[in-house]
Design a protein around this nucleic acid. Structure first.
Length: 557
RNA sequence: UGACCCAUGGUGUAACUGGCAACACGUUUGAUUUUGGUUCAAAAGAGUCCAGGUUCGAGCCCUGGUGGGUCAACCA
């Protein structure tokens, strides 16, 4: 691996500087700290790649830690999916799988110390009252009337909060930080709230739960994290992060903020993704149209492509919107090297070759992957009747149309040259069949006389094939910035045609025994993989992404 | 309104910490091609938000604007 010193991102620069100065004994230790309240998405992938990537690059460690401090929103279902997704992306946290909830006792003890130091107090104000007394950035807060409670009373009350003597919302433990800081995070923030709720790990042991700011820094501190990487919206929290750790008198990691990922034509907030799932706009968290890692996996994205994408987009502090084309390029690049080529017809048009012997079937050799000779070859059946793609025929074809048209000759890939002799239509004028002739000397796709044809079509034999369902996806939203519209909710901007199901597609027989998730290139169409709903009896393919198509582009313009 | 952060081709990131802006995606053109794919070659496209200042020299430093983001949950 060659490191290019000239193109470090700002976090690498900080780390290398720390390393040079011997900070933290020249140790790098990061963590990926998801809250298990939803499925991971491509934005998390960026963070995962960053955190694990920094540890990898600088011979450090990266922990996987669940920030499970809010039992009302969290669930083991999410824990399981997150573990699966991070693992699938190809990262290894060794035996360092941690839970914030494992530190609850420690956090509680430290909170007691904070009370003893006069840095925290039990407050009886309701959420509404606190809000009303909060002031504004330029107007100081009114002090809570409970701010001056004695240490003894605070200690007693806090212990009774823990013991479950008070109902939800009746009391909080608040830090005594400031009443007039222009940084609103510093205005006597809550450290603990009462929640008589079942926690997915600690059950009913606790009825008070620490707030993010109090908990997160301690989690980082306990684990000996050196660089605590998080997104920009926590920038205003950094002074509080530092304050808590300094007041608690414990080791303080360095929090560094970077810009989260935004992708065009998608929404990225967990809340919105949850709504799409709950309100059935999609089939689930792993719907292939979702930007979730599980959705993208099901869609046919590879972990390598996601990691390559993360590398490509970089790390910085400026708000950004990455073009989905960048993501699509990353999958194509990976799949081009790895996907086995196969022929499939999605919108079939029957072709009868009138001079081909009736009842005869021959096997033709086809290359599995022109990018990888070791992938070998396979045989494909061919006979008098085949299907071609409907869009590969045009009755009144312009000069630049290289495909089949009346009187024109094209190559059937790996098979023969055929010429269109006749167009058969039904009573409504719809084309139902093409009658063609073939050149028996052009077997394999080469003509002995050196005659050139511009077009090569994919095809599938009309009788020896597999009938499959193909699910074709388009972007989930019709506009590049679905949450940027002031009038319309993102839900009104959903693309009604984001999913089209084709029940009668034909695929060559060689895919018969393929396993779920295996990916293919359907020649000239795009990359497809086998959906988890697929079975031997009914194969189902998902379209991952199309091939680049300069003909389609020309047609639009 | 106050604090904090950000500002470089259409998009995203760079520019060895001051030496006349590079890479990727996208776009266009040409070559090759049994995938209108891939590959290869080339081109167009920013003079770095604005105004001052420091300097022989500024995208990098300073000042003041402008624009954008974040924060005023008992969410994270």
């Amino acid at each position: 691996m060659e490191e290019n010193k000239a193109s470090l991102n700002f976090i690498e620069q900080i780390i290398e500087n720390d390393l040079k100065n011997g900070k933290n004994n020249s140790r790098v230790h990061t963590r990926f700290p998801p809250e298990p309240n939803g499925y991971l998405h491509i934005g998390h992938a960026k963070s995962i790649c960053l955190n694990f990537g920094m540890a990898e690059k600088y011979n450090g460690l990266c922990n996987l830690r669940f920030d499970d401090t809010n039992p009302t929103k969290e669930d083991v279902e999410y824990v399981d999916s997150i573990i699966e997704d991070v693992k699938w992306l190809g990262f290894d946290w060794g035996d360092r799988l941690y839970y914030a909830s494992d530190y609850f006792d420690r956090m509680y003890d430290l909170a007691v110390e904070m009370i003893k130091k006069g840095k925290a107090f039990v407050c009886d104000l309701s959420a509404e009252e606190v809000s009303a007394m909060r002031g504004t950035p330029s107007i100081p807060s009114q002090a809570s009337p409970y701010r001056t409670r004695s240490v003894e009373e605070n200690l007693d009350l806090f212990a009774r909060m823990k013991a479950g003597e008070f109902p939800d919302g009746s009391k909080t433990l608040r830090a005594k930080v400031s009443l007039d800081s222009p940084n609103m995070q510093m205005r006597d923030p809550a450290m603990y709230r009462i929640r008589h709720a079942h926690h997915h790990r600690t059950g009913s042991k606790w009825c008070i739960y620490p707030m993010y700011d109090w908990a997160h820094g301690l989690e980082d501190s306990i684990e000996g994290i050196t660089h605590s990487l998080c997104t920009l919206e926590f920038e205003n929290h950094r002074p509080l992060y530092d304050w808590y750790l300094n007041e608690a008198g414990v080791y303080r990691p360095q929090q560094i903020e970077f810009a989260r990922l935004n992708l065009s034509y998608t929404v990225m907030s967990k809340r919105k993704l949850l709504e799409l799932v709950q309100e059935k706009f999609v089939s689930g968290w792993d719907d292939p149209r979702m930007p979730t890692i599980s959705g993208m996996r099901r869609r046919g994205y590879t972990p390598e492509s996601l990691r390559a994408f993360s590398d490509r987009i970089g790390i910085a502090k400026r708000n950004n919107v990455i073009d989905v084309a960048m993501l699509e390029h990353s999958v194509r690049e990976d799949l081009n090297k790895r996907a086995k080529r196969v022929m499939a017809v999605i919108d079939p048009l029957k072709v009868t070759i009138k001079n081909y012997p009736e009842g005869h079937v021959e096997e033709l050799e086809a290359v599995n992957n022109p990018e990888d000779e070791s992938a070998g070859t396979r045989m494909i059946p061919f006979s008098k009747q085949i299907y071609i793609e409907r869009e590969d025929f045009m009755e009144d074809a312009p000069k630049k149309f290289f495909r089949l048209a009346p009187g024109r000759e094209v190559r059937l890939r790996y098979a023969y040259f055929i010429t269109c002799e006749e167009v058969i239509k039904d009573e409504n004028g719809h084309i139902v069949e093409l009658i063609c002739t073939y050149d028996p000397l052009s077997k394999g796709g080469k003509s002995p006389d050196g005659r050139k044809v511009k077009g090569t079509l994919h095809w599938v034999d009309a009788t020896n094939n597999i009938k499959a369902q193909v699910r074709v996806y388009d972007r989930l939203f019709t506009v590049a910035d679905p949450d940027g519209d002031k009038e319309k909710s993102y839900k009104e901007l959903l693309n009604p045609d984001s999913l089209s199901i084709i029940d009668q597609a034909f695929v060559e027989p060689s895919v018969a025994n393929a396993e779920v998730l295996s990916y293919y290139q359907f020649e000239r169409l795009g990359y497809f993989n086998i959906d988890k709903d697929s079975s031997k009896e009914k194969m189902i393919f998902n379209k991952t992404v199309g091939l680049k198509d300069s003909w389609a582009k020309e047609n639009v313009g």
